[in-house]
Amino acid sequence: MIGAMLGRFSIGSYIPWLAWVDKLTGLHREADQLAKEIDEFYEGVIEEHVNKKVIDVESQDLVDILLDLQRDNSTGFVIERCTIKAIIMVTSLYLGFPCICI
């Protein structure tokens, strides 16, 4: 689904007064659906780590560390779940992990 969206052409990006055409072609609906699927995927990853029973310090990954920071609240600021999802997404895209196969 991501590959299909990357190949779509958005008229509204180049000619703003024709942005209504993107809505007609279903581009906005497909983009919203893709965003929802990606959010559900990352929500599942976080829930999987929250529900993990045994947490060995050596086997912790980025998600475990971020959840520990969220629980401890030792940073002085609140780490929300959407922030954790954003960090996971940016890190996986930056490092080139093909972890999104939706």
Results as ranks from 00 to 15, higher is better:
P16R: 03
P16V: 01
W17L: 05
W17H: 05
L18M: 12
L18P: 00
L18W: 02
A19D: 03
A19K: 12
W20T: 06
W20H: 04
W20I: 04
W20K: 07
W20N: 02
V21N: 04
V21K: 00
V21Q: 00
V21E: 00
D22H: 02
D22S: 07
D22R: 06
L24G: 06
T25N: 01
T25I: 09
G26M: 05
L27Q: 02
R29N: 10
A31W: 01
A31R: 15
A31H: 10
D32N: 13
D32Q: 14
Q33N: 14
Q33S: 13
Q33Y: 04
Q33E: 15
Q33R: 15
L34I: 09
L34V: 08
L34P: 01
A35H: 04
A35Y: 00
K36L: 11
E37F: 06
I38Y: 04
I38T: 12
I38G: 03
I38A: 14
D39Q: 11
D39A: 12
D39V: 04
D39W: 02
F41E: 08
F41H: 12
F41Y: 11
F41C: 07
F41L: 09
F41S: 05
Y42L: 11
Y42F: 09
Y42D: 02
E43R: 13
G44H: 06
G44W: 02
G44D: 04
V45S: 05
V45P: 04
I46V: 13
I46S: 07
I46Q: 08
E47T: 15
E47I: 13
H49L: 04
H49E: 08
H49Y: 02
V50W: 03
K52V: 03
K52M: 09
K52H: 07
K53H: 10
K53T: 13
V54P: 03
V54H: 12
V54C: 09
V54G: 10
I55E: 12
I55T: 12
I55S: 12
I55W: 07
I55A: 11
D56T: 14
V57I: 14
V57F: 11
E58H: 13
E58K: 15
S59G: 08
S59R: 15
